[in-house]
Design a protein around this nucleic acid. Structure first.
Length: 809
DNA sequence: TTGTATACTTAGGAGCGTAACA
DNA sequence: TGTTACGCTCCTAAGTATACAA
């Protein structure tokens, strides 16, 4: 049976869930929908007072906890501070029994002999005075034997260890580096030209379309021309391959040094604001008002967004109006007091017309625009890093506009100010040509720091955070980091069993903070949750990760859906994406969670004695370089590898193999909760596809009855009738064709439905060791470009080049 | 020791171009 | 030939992790 057949159309809504059953960690199903609008759930549940209280209490505890380590453990503090909790720590009869961990999945790491006993004594010890004498040894780095972290020959760190002392290459001298072309900053220079061209072209546009439609047509290419183009493509590919910097064959610099020579053209600034044309007006309270340039520009930002839901949100409108008024003159400010009385209609219409015009540009206009953009890329889009020309990822300064935070962001609608050269810090080599600032301007600073990878930085005004211009994903600096990331994750593979044993035994630690750490680690490992750093309140949307989970985010069920000890998670994670999951956990985790919840309000922190910094410090003591994030990479990659093994056969067709690859990828995306908003036209396109399927089914039925009829006639008139025999053959072929088309459509429908809310790209680009995919392609006899597009192949060039068929993550 | 700054990765959406299809 | 769906690129927000200064 083909894999897709496992999910017939009428069950596709459950496809993602079903798919999750084939994942090793069967409890990882995320059966949620995505929250587009954080309705009551978030805001109702958020007990802001509780959060503030929480934070303060946590801070105090942080101080006392540090002290308590010396004083004999935080259990004492716990007793002092929360007597009620202490009274309620009787975990019942079950703790008198010997507990044996279920031997499945993650749990399998604990053997029967390792099963943990937890008796009332343990708890009374935690409660009683004895604890005062108990030294906290749980943080002892010896807990995991260092021998367990073995390095293999191909280990990255081993490679690091073999570091060759960097010999100053004479050719790196700035005098030898070809001087970059004269760097010229054209603050908005292009836009004028473009606008003029567009204007004149616009007039001609319809004429050209009607009169010269024949000229616009591409002349049909001859066979020779097609072959020539093919050869050219191959040649280009070869050239590209030859000119590729094979940095993975070179030695790394000493720690911290990122480059020896760096030269670039600086950032590309967005065009200056162009005032509204005379026939476009803003109205306040029904009266025409001519705004100052600064106020007009901000009004345009708002008008441009009128079709977006953002502009209907109270917070967005209030923030916008507040910031807009700051840009107004005194007179404007005293006049414009109510956003509801503002009429941006004409400005909005002008913007829409511009968008429409851009869509309707002629081929020539589009080509001219493309060339102009290419020119900008050529000038600003590359830098010289050591000997090599590297592509820059984001060389354009972010244009001003209204801040679009995700979810219920308290700062949405605020004005994102225009960045000036005076805000910009340039980073390049001392020997390099320093980029020239736009005429009449100067840079904030020029520095020469080769321990960082950024070329340009500035501080944005919304959150006060620093923005950077860095290299493209296919660059050495990014690739090397990526490789290193996967090597650390691979290293975790060799010691994950020990780490799991450790946190399992920590589940019955006498120290509350150690228990909390153990439960958090259990979640991070089992569910691939993010660490959950602390966030400044009121600065961002109310989202959480593992360590910042609050009481309101989990519900405990002793029994649920026929399973024991189920934890129901419901919270907003990164980007305000909802995480909803019902997970059976081991009894010890469940009991601990019960304990952590005691005497807490919904807005209180679940892990009130845990910080990501503590957690990571502990993890790095278990394995160098280990942080919470590494578990996500490790579990994602190992899941892909296992799923590929499970789902694919060498005898499968190419289509089947690719479907299996996507399914394995999808399993990881579900694990990591990578969701996307269903495409706007999803229902419509599914309906269209379904009607096509129905039509095809009818067609098939007709074809089948036609075939039956033809066979009947042929039989009646005898097999010698040649014409009738041909007709039968033709009908047979029609039926076959119909069936194949139907099959194809059904696969398409299933695949589309399964992918409705799942984003595969994020895991593919950030979590899946590319060497697994490359080795799989080699094993399956598939070209890598079946699974990686051009830019992905560039990003993973190191993996494509070095991976052998027998690679194991 | 703790808060803050900094550097970097991870993330989903918008918009555009193009392949597939009727 | 026109329409539609989808893949790709760009954009920038939102995380993680750590270095550093008070």
């Amino acid at each position: 049976m083909l894999p897709w057949r496992r999910f017939p159309l009428n069950e596709v809504n459950f496809a993602a869930q079903k798919l999750a059953f084939v994942i090793k960690y069967s409890s990882l199903i995320v059966s949620s929908g995505k929250i587009q609008d954080c309705d009551g759930m978030g805001s109702e549940r958020v007990d802001t007072e509780g959060k503030a209280r929480n934070k303060e209490a946590k801070m105090k505890r942080r101080k006392s906890d540090h002290g308590s380590t010396r004083a004999g453990g935080d259990a004492i503090k716990n007793n002092k501070k929360t007597p009620k909790t202490r009274e309620k720590t009787d975990l019942g009869e079950s703790h008198k029994k010997v507990m044996v961990f279920k031997s499945e999945n993650l749990d399998s790491t604990i053997s029967a002999s390792e099963s943990v006993k937890e008796t009332d004594d343990d708890f009374s010890a935690r409660k009683g005075p004895k604890i005062r004498r108990v030294k906290d040894e749980s943080m002892d780095s010896d807990a995991i034997p260092t021998e367990s972290v073995k390095e293999t020959d191909n280990d990255f760190s081993a490679r690091k260890g073999l570091k060759r002392k960097w010999v100053q290459d004479e050719s790196m001298d700035s005098s030898v580096i070809p001087t970059s072309k004269k760097i010229k900053h054209k603050l908005g220079e292009n836009s004028d030209e473009e606008r003029k061209t567009k204007k004149s072209n616009k007039k001609m546009q319809k004429k050209v379309k009607c009169e010269d439609s024949n000229e616009c047509k591409k002349p049909k290419r001859t066979k020779g021309e097609i072959e020539e183009a093919r050869q050219l493509k191959i040649k280009k590919k070869e050239e590209e391959e030859q000119s590729r910097w094979r940095w993975w064959e070179e030695e790394k610099y000493e720690d911290g040094v990122k480059w020896r020579f760096l030269e670039h053209s600086g950032p590309y600034f967005p065009p200056e604001y162009q005032p509204l044309p005379d026939n476009v007006h803003f109205y306040y309270d029904g009266k025409k008002v001519k705004l100052s340039l600064a106020a007009e520009e901000v009004a345009l930002f708002f008008a441009q967004m009128l079709d977006h839901e953002y502009t209907t949100k109270k917070v967005f409108r209030e923030n916008f109006f507040k910031d807009w008024r700051k840009e107004m003159t005194d007179a404007e400010r005293s006049l414009i007091q109510d956003l509801g009385k503002c009429d941006f209609g004409e400005i909005h219409a002008m913007h829409k017309a511009k968008v429409e015009a851009r869509k309707n540009m002629t081929k020539e206009e589009k080509q001219a625009l493309k060339e102009a953009n290419q020119k900008i890329v050529d000038e600003f889009g590359y830098c010289l890093l050591d000997h090599h020309r590297e592509r820059i990822g984001n060389f354009k300064i972010e244009p001003p506009g209204l801040f679009r935070g995700r979810g219920e962001h308290p700062k949405q609608g605020m004005l994102k100010k225009r960045i000036q050269p005076e805000d910009i810090i340039i980073n390049c080599s001392k020997e390099a040509c320093i980029p020239v600032p736009p005429a009449g301007h100067r840079w904030k600073e020029v520095r020469h720091d080769n321990t960082v990878t950024w070329l340009v930085s500035w501080t944005e005004n919304i959150q006060g955070s620093i923005k950077y211009i860095m290299l493209n994903a296919n660059s050495k600096l990014k690739g090397e980091k990526d490789w290193e990331k996967y090597e650390v994750a691979r290293k975790l593979k060799s010691c994950v069993d020990n780490i799991r044993s450790q946190y399992r035994s920590d589940l019955k630690s006498r120290q509350m903070s150690t228990r909390q750490r153990a439960v958090a680690l259990y979640f991070i490992d089992k569910l691939a949750l993010r660490a959950g750093n602390e966030k400044e309140e009121g600065e961002t949307a109310d989202t959480v990760g593992c360590c910042s989970l609050r009481v309101e985010h989990i519900t405990l069920h002793e029994q649920m859906d026929g399973k024991e000890y189920v934890v129901e998670f419901d919270f907003l994670g990164k980007d305000s994406i909802r995480y909803y999951n019902k997970v059976p956990v081991i009894k010890k985790v469940f009991k601990n969670l019960k304990l952590f919840l005691e005497n807490k309000q919904p807005g209180d922190e679940l892990f009130d004695r845990l910080y990501t910094s503590m957690l990571n410090k502990h993890l790095s003591s278990l394995m160098p370089g280990l942080t919470a994030k590494v578990f996500r990479t490790y579990n994602a990659s190992i899941t892909l590898q296992e799923q590929l093994k499970e789902l694919t056969n060498k005898s499968d067709s190419v289509a089947e193999k690719l479907l299996s690859y996507n399914r394995a990828n999808r399993a990881v995306a579900i694990l990591c909760n990578h969701q996307r908003a269903p495409p706007k036209t999803f229902d419509q396109s599914m309906a269209t596809l379904q009607s096509k399927i129905d039509a095809r089914k009818e067609q098939l039925a007709l074809a089948k009855s036609g075939l039956k009829q033809a066979k009947k006639e042929a039989k009646a008139k005898g097999s010698s009738e040649f014409k009738l025999q041909t007709l039968v053959e033709r009908k047979k072929a029609a039926v076959k064709r119909c069936e194949e088309q139907l099959l194809k459509m059904e696969i398409q429908a299933t695949d589309r439905e399964e992918n409705k809310q799942i984003a595969l790209g994020t895991s593919k680009l950030n979590y899946l060791d590319p060497r697994i995919s490359v080795a799989w392609c080699k094993n399956m006899g598939l070209p890598v470009d079946k699974i990686y597009n051009k830019s992905q192949r560039d990003k993973f060039a190191w993996a494509i080049d070095m991976t052998e068929v027998d690679f194991e993550f």
